[in-house]
């Protein structure tokens, strides 16, 4: 396998006394699609949010392309970064949310070019051109001047994916990207994600779409109560799970 893009090492987190993540470790290689499944409250969202430091882990370390997220490694110690420096790290990590979270006061185009332009990644003209190409790829050519409220859920989620892609991230994190969609809109978003996977994008995906995981994922992690209880190649974990909890869970969601 290729070099690791994301390394999660012994990450634990608790809210007060309550442990949400217990010593979680895994690695995601370049171009790999990793899927995290598990029951509600398992800590799936929390681990994703730790990867781009929307949450801070209590212990352990997360590396993206070798950089410790939220820290600077110096003299054998990890020094906590300030918010500006964390923002620079986040720019290389895309995230797609369950509820899209498009900026409501901006058009589709403004949503997409906001970060690349204000962070000085490219000129406005270049950003607009790139946005149009990306919108064409997800089948939304006509929508650049619409406001999010004028789009369907599926269209909004495709725009959200484009917005994340516009930063040319090293890895894309998806937190249940189709759970808030009407069933007939799920397909259009999954098909965009499948295209991305085939194009070699590194992705970590939290989902309840087991069929999609089987089709697209390389590896699957099954989480319960803050722990990864089973992991392995997608086909193996999803078809012949070894752990009782995994079997029970898959039996229920299928």
């Amino acid at each position: 396998m290729n070099a690791s893009i994301v390394e999660v090492r012994s990450v634990s987190k608790s809210y007060g006394e309550f442990p949400v993540l217990k010593n979680v470790s895994f690695e995601v290689a370049d171009g790999e699609v990793a899927c995290i499944i598990g029951p509600s409250g398992a800590g799936k969202s929390t681990i994703l949010r730790c990867i781009n430091r929307l949450e801070k882990q209590s212990s352990g370390m997360i590396f993206v392309s070798g950089d410790p997220i939220g820290f600077r490694h110096e003299g054998g110690k990890y020094h906590e970064l300030d918010e500006r420096e964390v923002a620079a790290q986040r720019a290389g990590i895309g995230m797609v949310f369950q509820r899209f979270n498009l900026f409501q006061h901006m058009t589709v185009m403004q949503n997409i070019i906001e970060a690349p332009v204000t962070l000085g990644r490219m000129s406005k003209a270049d950003a607009v051109e790139m946005a149009r190409e990306l919108l064409a790829r997800v089948g939304l050519t006509q929508k650049e001047n619409d406001y999010p409220a004028q789009l369907s859920g599926g269209q909004q989620q495709r725009v959200a994916i484009v917005r994340a892609l516009a930063m040319q991230p090293k890895v894309l994190l998806f937190d249940e990207p189709t759970s808030a969609l009407d069933p007939e809109l799920v397909g259009e978003v999954l098909s965009v994600m499948k295209d991305l996977a085939e194009a070699g994008m590194t992705m970590i995906l939290v989902t309840h779409e087991i069929g999609f995981a089987r089709e697209v994922a390389d590896t699957v992690y099954f989480m319960v109560d803050g722990e990864i209880v089973e992991q392995g190649a997608a086909a193996q974990v999803l078809t012949s799970p070894g752990h009782e909890r995994t079997k029970a869970f898959l039996g229920r969601v299928k």
Partner: peptide
């Protein structure tokens, strides 16, 4: 909505922006 702030942070905008 809290999601607006999170999405903005997630694409790498600094807190002030």
């Amino acid at each position: 909505d809290r999601g607006q702030r999170e999405a903005a942070l997630a694409i790498g905008l600094p807190p002030q922006r």
